[in-house]
Amino acid sequence: MSNDLTTDVPQLTLVHGDAPLAPLSSERSTVVHVVGARPNFVKMAPVVAALRERGAFNQVLVHTGQHYDRRMSDEILADLDFPEPDHFLAVGSGAHGEQTAKVLSAFERVLVDTQPTFVVVAGDVNSTLACALAASKLGIPIAHVESGLRSFDWTMPEEINRVLTDRLSDLLFTHSPEGLENLKAEGVEESRVHYVGNTMIDSLRRCERRARERQLAVQLGVEPGSYILVTLHRPSNVDHPSRLSGIVGGLVALAADAPIVFPIHPRTRARLAEDGSLARLEAAGVHCIEPVGYLDFLSLQADAGAVVTDSGGVQEETSALGVPCYTFRTNTERPITISHGTNTLLGDDPAELAGVRISSWDPTPSAISLWDGHAADRLADVLVTNYALCAAPAVQEQR
């Protein structure tokens, strides 16, 4: 998520997936899917595909435009064979309240026009909460993909988004056992919660072969298994100059021991360029590359000797790939990647970056329950059972 107040949104060229959605039919219930940021695309692509196979719903796709950079959006949609969205809201970036309000207002108009039976949201970005709020106020049922994750850190905007979205949702889909325990502790009825597994891993397994064939590391001139992949984007890490400078110092020191590949988020690059930190990294030999699409990033993860990240999804992907992950945070809402995976909490002191080590063994994918590539099938079956024969609620624009 972004605190960047830039509001100019370039036009995206959105691409069709290999298998277009079925035409709308008055004989089927209608579902509206929401995507807005890179993690949403990865989580929702398998769900859309699984529902398309079942043919039980009209599917309407709404792209909020929260991630509007071409490399952060339509390249990833193409990599995932994601169908062309029916609505692009073009909300752009902004302060949290501004961005959330823009999405809520624009999405409400879509709901009034579409009259869906239910809405599916995923994850914990601003678009997730805004669309859940809009649907809830119009009396439209909500299904939340990736429910029950908790960092218990209320300084994280994502924690606020995920907790409130869960409270608004009618069906809650968890991807690890602790999700149910968290929701039960908050008073959510167990009958509304369904443990289906991790749809992000569905995308990974579907795309893994194509990603490995790209061998992007080799193209960058680094030996597979020998380098550290770095990804940092959280405002708490990149928006404060003194903190970012400390992180850069840690990466410069780390680069003396191993090659570093750093695909730099647009916001992070802007911060690094402001005080000369980008030049420091490049002088130390860090491969400071532009953001890459889903397949290219998956290729870099699969061939890395270690990964340093502040991303939630990367913690999951590295566990599935068996690549050691060092999470540059003091907490994680994905503890199963620590207890059953390859993830290590590094803390938030840049000095701790010195503890990152290249793996000395071949990657061993973690056997986490239901992270088996079929989570979307289980999720789709629940949606069909609950909503395939339901009439759409009467939705009227609120005045």
Score class of each variant (00 low, 15 high):
residue 232 L to Q: 12
residue 232 L to M: 11
residue 234 R to W: 02
residue 234 R to T: 02
residue 237 N to A: 07
residue 237 N to E: 10
residue 237 N to G: 11
residue 238 V to S: 02
residue 238 V to L: 02
residue 240 H to E: 15
residue 240 H to K: 10
residue 242 S to C: 02
residue 243 R to I: 09
residue 243 R to Y: 09
residue 244 L to K: 05
residue 245 S to Y: 00
residue 245 S to F: 00
residue 246 G to M: 14
residue 247 I to C: 06
residue 248 V to D: 05
residue 252 V to H: 08
residue 253 A to Q: 14
residue 254 L to G: 05
residue 254 L to D: 06
residue 257 D to V: 08
residue 257 D to A: 15
residue 257 D to M: 14
residue 260 I to E: 10
residue 260 I to M: 04
residue 262 F to E: 06
residue 263 P to L: 09
residue 263 P to S: 08
residue 263 P to Q: 08
residue 265 H to A: 04
residue 266 P to H: 05
residue 266 P to Y: 03
residue 266 P to D: 05
residue 266 P to I: 08
residue 267 R to L: 10
residue 267 R to Q: 06
residue 271 R to G: 00
residue 273 A to V: 04
residue 274 E to F: 00
residue 275 D to P: 00
residue 275 D to R: 13
residue 277 S to T: 00
residue 277 S to N: 10
residue 278 L to S: 01
residue 279 A to H: 07
residue 280 R to V: 00
residue 280 R to Y: 06
residue 282 E to F: 02
residue 283 A to V: 00
residue 283 A to W: 01
residue 284 A to Q: 05
residue 284 A to R: 03
residue 285 G to H: 05
residue 287 H to Y: 03
residue 288 C to M: 01
residue 289 I to L: 11
residue 290 E to Y: 05
residue 290 E to D: 15
residue 292 V to W: 10
residue 294 Y to P: 14
residue 295 L to N: 12
residue 295 L to C: 12
